[in-house]
Every structure is written in C-alpha cells, then in structure tokens.
Design a protein around this nucleic acid. Structure first.
Lengths: 194, 194
DNA sequence: CCAATATTGTACTGATTAGTACATAATTAA
DNA sequence: TTAATTATGTACTAATCAGTACAATATTGG
C-alpha cells in the first residue's frame, strides 16, 4: 500500500455533501459548493468519485438511509413497545426546528426531484424508502399478533399508509410549521394504527 | 393601439411552459427549452415576461391553480353530493396514466423544490395549495351540518389531513403506480371522512 | 403614405456549469 | 535511496446558463 495518503475520510465528506444536497436539492447544488463544504479539491474529488456529482448523490442517499435505518432498528430493538416507538417517530416530527421542517425528508425530496432528472436515481431513492416501509410492516405485523393492534387490515397496507403519511407530512410541515397544529394533524392520521 | 401584433397568446404559452415545468421541475427547465415549447423567441419572451424565468414560473403556478380551482368549484356546484365528489377526487388519482403518476402534483412539486430555490415562490405555492384546502374545509363543514359526516373533528383539521393525504399520495403513486393498490391505499386513508 | 409604436428574431455577453489534464507532492516497498 | 504508486491543487476546456442589445419588421393613427 504505497502512495500519498488521503487527507479526507470518504464517509465524512459524503455527510458534508448530504447537508448541502438536503438543503438545496440535487440540481441546485453546484459542484464547487459541494467541494467547498466537503473541504477537498477537484483533483481529490474526481479521483474518489469517478462518476462525479451523480455518484456523490447516489452514495449520499445510500449512506443517509443506512445510518437512519441502523438507528431506527437499534431503537426498536431497545424498546419494549415498538408500536409506540413508531407513533412517537411520527409525533416527534412536530417538534422539529423550523429549519428542519423546511428541509423535509431527504429521501422523499429525492423521489420528488429525481423523477424529472434521473429515473435510475429515483428508483434508488424509492427502494431506500421501501426499507423504512418494510420496518413498519414488521412492527405492525408483530403488534397484530400481540393483539396490540386490533385492525384487520394487512400490515403491508397499513405500512404503506404510514409512508403516505410520512410523505404528506413532509409537505404540510412546511405549510404549518407550528408544533401544536402539526401534532394534532399527525395524531388524527395515526388513527390507522388502532 | 398601434405596433406590430403579438404572434402568441400569453395564457396559451404559459400553459405550454407549465407542461415543461411540471415534467422537469423549475431548475431543470432551461430557458431555451421553455421557449422552444412556447414557440416564441427570446425577444418576445423577455418583452412579455420582464422577470424572466421566475416570472414565467410564478404566473404558471397561478394560472394552473386558477384553472384547477375553477373546474373543481364548477364540479362541486353541479353535483348533489359534494362530499362524494371529494372522495372521488382522491380515488380517481389511482386511475391516472403512469406518466401522470410520475409527474405528481404541480403545486406540491413546487412547494418541495422552491424551499431550496426561492422562498417567495414557495410561499406562493403554499398559498395556492391552501385554496384547495379551503374548498375541502367548506365541503366538510357543510357535510357535518347535513349529518352526512359524523366525525366531530374540526373541518379545518380534516381538510388539512386531506391535503396531507394529497401530498403523500403524490409520492406513493410514484412508488406504486398500480391502480388497484393505490385505490386500496387511498380508500383506507379516506377513513378520516366518516 | 408616413410617423409613431409595439413585437420580433438574432447575435452577443459574461457568468457559471461539470468535468479534465497534468505537474507536483507525499507516501511505501524494495 | 530510489522507483512505484497514489493523492493533491491548479489551470484549463467546452458547454450551457439566463439575460441583453438592437436592427428589422409589422402594425395603426393621422
């Protein structure tokens, strides 16, 4: 293993790029701005990310999803009431800072923007959001077995409606960033978990 | 009234531009591409739209909303069962062509993209989507008076949850463009109208 | 028919875009 | 100590961006 040492950690600079992409979207994030945030020059960047901006965005989506799902699975493993944790997962959005309401969900934003820009990347973002959906499905199925959930709807359908709620809140939280109103709204829609 | 006559109708070219914006989003729609679709040259364009691309987009959002709301209000005035019409309004999304699933809702897309690009335009898009929300509120309030709706929730809150559903479906319809699955999903979530 | 006026098409601008080429620098294995 | 290797920073390119300048054109009122 010879050669000049890298001055940066790939995972760390992808996190930095994610901040920019999340705030401005894919198209509106210029390469210069991304490099500035990542703290590396063009030489290093195009050596590490041969696919340029697209590869960076794709790896950003993957890393973001992976981290988020890892945390969620850990939290689920630690709690005694996974269903309640899912409820809180939604209700706690209401308490986000205004800047975070404005940013919305990174994956949902990607699905929205990529439809027009790059369908392969959209498919990737969809697939990553389906990982979350799958986690919901498992929690719901288990809760039905425990008789904790009385609804007879299929867990897959309920989970899908939670993803719809998640995506919808992503917009309404920008329209009504007030925590109280938002919590009411989410609580009403969590009625599918009964 | 002297001078060389205009070769285009402003409303018509805005409709043409709307098609492009809807398909590709704001940032990804280049001025050249828009002019090509509108069928006019730069001279004409920058004379009629002094604010350039931004003014065009803003007027596009306004015209789109105005037309859509006009049609909806007309339909509501014509039917004997406005509540059922609202239900159908949602359920009929499921039967859209795949290309329309992919495009999503013009106004929701705008709220999503403009947050990162131009907050004034985002505020405009929010305000326009609130027009739809207001229409829902009125229908729901009326239906509660008629005892057609039994829920005791405030009409404002129910309408807001319909907007959340609308926005959410805007994403899930891209994930699952299958009409049957989508209809099931929407039907389940329309449970707030009970 | 001509002056005033409004619209058009084209050529141009300067800024910004993503990405490349390449000489220089820093490391390791031999 | 040197050759091989890998990474870095900078200067450059070619394309595209939104927007402007302006001469040519088509109309109407007088």
């Amino acid at each position: 293993m010879a050669g000049r040492p890298k001055i940066f950690d790939e995972q760390a600079v992808i996190d930095k790029a994610t901040e920019v992409f999340w705030l401005k979207g894919y198209e509106a994030s210029s390469a210069d701005e991304l490099l500035e945030a990542m703290g590396i020059g063009k030489g290093s960047f195009y050596l590490a990310f041969k696919g340029g901006k697209k590869e960076l965005y794709e790896r950003s989506l993957e890393q973001f999803s992976q981290k988020a799902m890892e945390k969620l699975r850990k939290d689920l493993a630690a709690t005694g009431d996974p269903l309640e944790l899912v409820r809180d997962f939604f209700l706690s959005i209401a308490d986000s800072k205004k800047a975070n309401h404005e940013k919305g969900c990174y994956m949902v934003n990607a699905i929205n923007e990529m439809g027009a820009v790059d369908s392969r990347l959209q498919a990737k973002a969809i697939q990553l959001l389906q990982v979350l959906e799958k986690v919901f499905t498992d929690v719901i199925r288990e809760a039905q077995k425990n008789k904790q959930l009385l609804t007879k709807e299929k867990p897959e359908l309920i989970a899908r409606s939670l993803i719809t709620l998640w995506s919808g809140i992503n917009i309404t939280r920008r329209m009504y960033p007030d925590a109280r109103q938002l919590k009411q709204l989410i609580a009403l829609q969590l009625d599918v978990l009964k």
